[in-house]
């Protein structure tokens, strides 16, 4: 797993504030330069990848079924907004809560095994959710849930407006991102890192490792759900694509490419992967091939990812 190698001085994280400020400034300007729908898609996936990174990068748990949280929350949020007529904030919240609950059940099962078994179990359970979504009535099968109303958030923000929608998505992403930063830098986050580095030692120090892993898993699932619910409202669509195993692979790719165990890596990775998908879309299955090749190169030559390598070069954890 990725390790941050830089010395941890008292103010060793100060540069992260600067980078964070730069990132916020960039996201405030970008929608006037780049197509906002692309940015919203990338932001949703960036949040998804950050949530995933909490597990793979900071706890050392490799989930290969994270699509189930993204997809399930998408379905619940879409259903809540369309059929129950809930306002968008409650619809997204309903999706997030559903993913957290699903995360609790899956987590309880999956943390009974470690390493690659953990990966296989999460993959298999995600496939089960996929088949459930394919067959259940309310998900609409192959069609998915279409033309979900965006609605009016908090009674004042009309999400039909592109820019309003963009800044709401940005706010949700930043809230999720800051929560993850807080968790990582908290004592709880330090214990997670201890588990990643040496699980038997963490146990011998008296930490209830299972409990820590489970909390991290549920948190990651909930934040993935937040991303999925937001995405469903933005695109007014919840479909099988989001629960399919290829989506689980994509989030692994985003995190790996950006840098596992780095704060900003998943954001960079998500933007690159989404851009690749958008610009190579007309090439059909070449996208899959390109993604596979990036996977192979990352694993063989480039395991720290873009931001991880950069951080090593600058001797600072990013």
């Amino acid at each position: 797993m990725a390790r941050d190698t830089a010395p941890r001085a008292k103010n060793g994280y100060r540069h992260q504030y600067a980078i964070f400020a730069f990132m916020v400034a960039l996201f405030l300007v970008l929608p006037y330069v780049i197509y906002p729908v692309f940015l919203m898609q990338a932001l949703c996936f960036a949040l998804f990848a950050c949530a995933f990174n909490l597990l793979i990068g900071y706890t050392g748990l490799v989930s290969f079924g994270h699509a189930m949280f993204l997809g399930a929350a998408g379905y619940i949020s879409a259903h809540a907004a369309k059929v129950w007529g809930l306002p968008p904030e409650l619809a997204i919240l309903a999706g997030t809560a559903a993913s957290a609950a699903l995360g609790l059940v899956v987590g309880l099962l999956a943390i009974r095994r470690q390493g690659i078994y953990f990966a296989m179990i999460t993959l298999a359970l995600a496939q089960m959710i996929f088949f459930f979504s394919l067959q259940a009535k309310f998900t609409g099968g192959e069609d998915g849930i279409q033309s979900v109303p965006r609605g009016v958030m908090f009674g004042i923000l009309n999400l039909q407006d592109m820019m309003t929608m963009y800044f709401v998505v940005l706010a949700i992403f930043l809230a999720g991102f800051l929560l993850i930063c807080r968790v990582i830098h908290s004592p709880f986050g330090q214990v997670l890192k201890a588990i990643r580095e040496n699980e038997p030692r963490a146990i011998s120090l008296g930490y209830n490792v299972h409990q820590y892993k489970l909390i991290a898993f549920v948190l990651s699932a909930a934040l993935s759900g937040l991303a999925g619910g937001t995405k469903a409202i933005v695109f007014q669509l919840a479909s099988l694509t989001d629960v399919h195993w290829t989506m689980s692979g994509e989030v692994v790719l985003m995190t790996l490419l950006g840098g596992m165990g780095t704060l900003f890596g998943p954001v960079v990775g998500a933007f690159i992967v989404i851009a690749m998908q958008n610009y190579l879309a007309q090439l059909g299955s070449w996208v899959t091939i390109a993604q596979g090749v990036v996977f192979v190169i990352c694993v063989l030559a480039f395991r720290r990812g873009i931001v991880g390598e950069l951080g090593r070069f600058l001797k600072k954890p990013l």
Binding site: V62, F64, V252, G292, F295
Partner: peptide, 24 residues
């Protein structure tokens, strides 16, 4: 010599490439 998970990630990437080539 690395964590077992890298083997899974590499072979996942290979699966995408092989499948993509045949689908193309």
């Amino acid at each position: 010599k690395l964590d077992h998970i890298y083997g899974l990630l590499l072979t996942f990437g290979l699966a995408l490439v092989i499948e993509g080539v045949f689908r193309n």
